[in-house]
Design a binder for these strands. Structure first.
Lengths: 249, 249
DNA sequence: TGACAGTTCAAACATGTGTTTGAAACTCGT
DNA sequence: ACGAGTTTCAAACACATGTTTGAACTGTCA
């Protein structure tokens, strides 16, 4: 923790669009390379040596421009976040006056896009997916700034699709059921590709998945509306399982 | 890669229940400690020094008894796998003659149990959950021996709940929708606890989740049966998104 | 007791990785 | 062209981690 370097970094950060020599080309190249490596292997597995090599920079460059590896990661995350926000607008162009069904469809499609596309424009989504599973210090901020708003949006859409009197827990769980279906394809990709090596996750498949998850979820919500408190077949909380889950080996 | 040590390991493995001094106590302690550490932090983050310290063994013990770190991991995985198979029987005690609804309920509850319980008896489930997201060389075997059979079981249950003529893709996607809802709670725990710090994942919550996911999924499948090829509101594959997903930065 | 195989141990080894250093190279205003 | 401020660089540092080594220890059997 050398004060001089910290100051260097602070200055370098301030003049991010300044007039310095070559307009911060190294800095920019580092951000670019880092985004690639971080999305591919995650924060911990990424090495600053690979990032610097890709950026054509010296290993000391990261510490000079960003303080340390975590600083670079944080910077990549916000940069890509701003980019993603412009690429994938929150409700994918569907207005708040649209029907709840249309809004849910838009939400699901947009979410799937962000999570599935292995595209340059989409590194943020894949970094987010990784943060959820293998969090770094950045997760707290991400939950506050990205995930919580999305959760709120989904909550209002779901509530609009359920009868007015629905209790909050049910509405919340329905939201999680929808999100779960989507994130499955982000998190379990290694398993899915092994189970079905042939299937490619291209645009056609994105459409298929959007269509299916929307249909599945809307169908469920409709039935929930129809019989608001059906006792959900097989709730029977078996005493046997209660035993099993507690037993020591 | 010293031949001598590899042979040592082979011998040590063979006599796993042998009559050696102290009946392989060190070996056993290593397996126990390793299972704890691997479930907590995963394969890569686990250090053999921590494992050995917990087991009260020397760092060289792992190489002596298991060849290397990966060998230990593989051994832990199979040991815990056998244990889990006895703890959580495949269909949770529901016979194949039971109604598809009952079988689905049992499947969901059993799956949730295996994935949620932070119990000694449950380390296998948590290691599996981790393998899906952050695979090691062991995943191929696990897909073959554990995941594929589960997927087949779920497939037959789902098909029984859908009309006979349903196309295979739809049935498959329904299965994935169910699995996705369940695994969400395994993979996104860091996010969930930040969104709702108060909620505890105890037995009551397990019952609630089982009940909800079952109800949600059965409702969806019922509606699917009712109108087999409803056009799923909002399939409209917007040209705009097609543009967005391809655009470079 | 003494040889022997199996096991444990402290220490060292080899490598990978984040970080720091001090000097050289570069840019730009004067 | 000069010099201050900025950036880059090769090298080294500090540390963590998987693995290996050779000696010491332990129990068994002759």
């Amino acid at each position: 923790m050398c004060l001089k370097l910290v100051l260097n970094m602070a200055v370098a950060t301030l003049r991010t669009e300044g007039t310095g020599p070559s307009f911060g080309a190294t800095r920019q190249a580092l951000l670019e390379a880092a985004a690639d490596v971080f999305t591919r292997v995650g924060f911990r597995q990424a090495t600053i040596r690979e990032i610097c090599q890709r950026a054509g920079a010296n290993v000391a460059a990261i510490n000079y421009h960003f303080g340390d590896k975590a600083g670079l990661y944080s910077e990549v995350l916000t940069t890509e976040g701003e980019l993603a926000q412009r690429r994938f607008p929150a409700e994918a162009g569907v207005s708040k006056q649209a029907s709840p069904e249309a809004r849910l469809t838009a939400f699901i499609r947009s979410f799937l896009q962000r999570v599935l596309a292995e595209d340059l424009a989409n590194r943020h989504g894949r970094m987010m997916a990784r943060e959820m599973v293998e969090p770094t210090a950045a997760l707290d901020r991400l939950v506050r700034e990205v995930i919580q708003p999305q959760a709120n949006l989904l909550a209002t859409i779901v509530r609009a699709l359920l009868p007015p009197g629905t209790d909050q827990t049910t509405a919340r769980l329905c939201g999680l059921s929808i999100v779960g279906q989507i994130l499955f394809y982000a998190h379990c990709r290694p398993v899915i590709t092994r189970l079905e090596p042939r299937r490619a996750y291209d645009l056609v498949e994105l459409d298929r998945l959007t269509s299916h998850i929307t249909r599945f979820s809307l169908a469920a919500l409709r039935e929930f509306s129809r019989r608001p408190d059906s006792p959900a077949l097989g709730v029977r909380r078996a005493a046997s399982s209660r035993r099993a889950i507690r037993s020591k080996r």
